[in-house]
């Protein structure tokens, strides 16, 4: 989200999509919202991230979302954190401060608990190693994914949200090698993201990558009942998932 407008990202380049009303109208956001276990919202404003404005949009968004919501982007103080949580978020997604201001992350965890903090890690793959990035993928940390994950775990972050910048928005599938490698060493739940474009990509992330959860922002590949069908595809592969009656929501249109 950027200034209330929803964006699509490909390799971290952004393309504007529309505001929440437009998404609701054209892409049946409710059908999407009622088929996911958790919603993650990022403030991807590249210049100065306005947390107040972001929170206002989050309030609107959360009115029709009855699942846990994780939100992040530009959270740089305890006041920012309170604002995002008061707007309806259950978890804070933290990227840059894990590297630049670990004390802040520690104070978030002290105040809200580690279950409230998701460390998001963006990375690119080179021939022999990986390199992670902060500031919306613009600055290298000089760390490998393993080193970065260890750092987040030492701070006591509750979950890792791992995004392959190379695969982001391509729809060609998750980076299963790295996901598998990280899920084997990570002590906390791992959410894999970047590259999902087809139903079997979700299943691959869980069964081959051994991730605890898989995430897509590529909603336009899964419009209308797409995510509902994705869920049932996963359940058919014996992945144990929460289930609920989607038709219930339709009676409240």
């Amino acid at each position: 989200m950027q200034n209330g407008v929803y964006m699509l990202s490909r390799n971290f380049s952004l393309q504007s999509v529309g505001n929440i009303d437009w998404i609701r109208e054209c892409y049946n956001f409710d059908a999407i919202a009622f088929s996911i276990d958790e919603l993650i919202v990022f403030n991807v404003e590249r210049e100065k991230k306005d947390v107040k404005e972001f929170s206002r949009n989050l309030i609107e968004l959360s009115k029709r979302c009855f699942m846990p919501i994780a939100a992040g982007g530009g959270i740089r103080s305890i006041e920012d954190a309170y604002m995002i949580l008061d707007a309806g978020a259950d978890k804070l997604v933290i990227n840059t401060p894990v590297i630049t201001n670990p004390e802040l992350v520690i104070s978030f965890i002290k105040t809200f608990g580690s279950q409230c903090i998701v460390a998001s890690i963006d990375y690119k793959k080179h021939d022999r190693h990986t390199e992670t990035f902060i500031h919306d993928g613009s600055h290298s940390t000089g760390l490998t994914v393993e080193e970065h994950v260890k750092k987040a775990e030492r701070l006591n972050c509750g979950e890792i949200y791992l995004t392959s910048m190379d695969n982001d928005g391509t729809g060609e599938g998750l980076d299963l090698d790295i996901i598998k490698k990280i899920s084997e060493v990570s002590m906390v739940p791992l959410i894999a993201s970047g590259g999902i474009g087809k139903f079997n990509h979700f299943t691959d992330g869980i069964l081959q990558g051994k991730a605890d959860a898989v995430s897509t922002a590529n909603l336009f590949n899964f419009i209308e009942d797409g995510l509902t069908d994705a869920r049932s595809t996963m359940q058919k592969c014996s992945i144990d998932m929460a289930s609920w009656d989607i038709d219930f929501f339709k009676s409240f249109k």
Binding site: S62, K63, R64, F66, D86, A87, G88, D90
Partner: peptide, 14 residues
């Protein structure tokens, strides 16, 4: 804690 989400849920079910 967050009372807004409880309020939203009740509003949704009218």
């Amino acid at each position: 804690g967050n009372i807004r989400s409880v309020y939203n849920a009740l509003n949704f079910i009218k």
